[in-house]
């Protein structure tokens, strides 16, 4: 089955992105396809390469980049939301790309299920 994921909250502040990540891992392990992960609202902050968590904490940004690399995931950051919050190509972590909101609607059309993680 094809899933699309919408993440509306940033890293560390809220558990939403952790839950979304573990959901994606479980879905991939079951042989499902993650059609796209779309980052919106403060969720765009999940893509900042400037994030530096303490050594003993999970690295949420790198974790997404790694999952994207392993599974060829399409991690899309909303351009309007990103520019509002200081996310640009120059500080975008590997595996993410910045694009328009149409990518969210398109993912909703193309996927069998869209699941939202937010606050």
């Amino acid at each position: 089955m094809k899933f699309a994921i919408l993440i509306n909250e940033g890293p560390y502040q809220h558990q939403a992105t952790d839950t979304a990540f573990l959901f994606c891992k479980a879905a991939l392990a079951k042989g499902h396809e993650i059609r796209r992960v779309f980052f919106y609202h403060d969720g765009v902050n999940n893509s900042s390469s400037l994030t530096e968590p303490p050594q003993d904490d999970r690295n949420i940004v790198q974790r997404w980049s790694k999952l994207a690399e392993e599974h060829k995931l399409d991690l899309v950051v909303c351009v309007a939301a990103a520019l509002r919050r200081g996310i640009k190509d120059e500080n975008l972590a590997p595996g993410f790309r910045i694009s328009g909101l149409g990518q969210l609607v398109e993912a909703g059309i193309e996927a069998d299920r869209l699941v939202t993680f937010g606050d």
Partner: peptide, 20 residues
């Protein structure tokens, strides 16, 4: 349920809604 059960539930029901 675990995260795998979460995935199964999403697959089982044609629509889902997160009450944010």
């Amino acid at each position: 349920v675990g995260y795998d059960g979460f995935v199964d539930l999403v697959a089982e029901y044609p629509t889902n809604q997160s009450w944010l």
